[in-house]
Design a protein around this nucleic acid. Structure first.
Lengths: 109, 109
DNA sequence: TTGACATATTCCGATATGGGCATATATTTG
DNA sequence: CAAATATATGCCCATATCGGAATATGTCAA
């Protein structure tokens, strides 16, 4: 088997740093492919391929405007990632609380 | 270049569904490798390899107890993922709000 | 239609992957 | 030390990747 396909789910799609860069950029506003190319300093085919992956997993949506394709983030598709990480949120809160507690105990000394 | 190395960062490590399964399992409590093997229904070498990846990126920590190795989640290492996804949280809140608004407009009709 | 611009797709090569299997290492027990 | 248990590592293979380069597709303008 080898590694799971990137196009499978959002977790895989987002594992690629370039794709996170693109999502970060699109978070600000809808952008054309060439705007992304300029901003990311990547080759246009690379950008188009990454956009295809992101689109396939639903992380972005696109619409045509004349010759351009305008891409935007579909934030809802990111939500499951947030929810998964969020299940660990309580854990790190506890861990931080414990660190703080220990620090206070020491300073009481 | 090919794909970025899995061991590079938490995003890549977590892209593998099996590793998320393991983290979910460890979220409940510290576990030995064989407990993980039993719970996940995976071969022991596979589990050990996944654990190595998780450990290399700091997502889990381990301690030896006799012949066993006990693994636990290092929640703090998941926090960057949460923070990244969280930057999109406002977006999906807006999107949902808009959907709700439209629904209400329709029902006013 | 032809040409220019914007984007997508295809083919290639190098490489990292994950599973299966065998085996090595570490620890306890006799 | 030897045997048993628990875990880690090494090797092989099939495969999914990413980037680069060339090319195909789509859209507008003259």
């Amino acid at each position: 088997m080898a590694r799971a396909a990137t196009t499978t789910d959002a977790f895989n799609a987002v594992a690629e740093p370039r794709r996170r860069d693109i999502l970060n950029f699109l978070a600000l506003q809808e952008r054309s492919v060439s705007e992304i190319v300029d901003a990311m300093e990547m080759e246009q085919p690379s950008v188009s391929k990454h956009l295809k992956v992101l689109k396939d997993v639903g992380l972005v949506a696109a619409r045509r405007e004349g010759r351009q394709m305008l891409y935007r983030v579909n934030a809802a598709a990111i939500r499951p990632l947030w929810e998964w990480t969020n299940t660990f949120e309580r854990m790190w809160r506890h861990q931080l609380a414990r660190v703080k507690e220990n620090a206070e105990k020491k300073s009481d000394w």
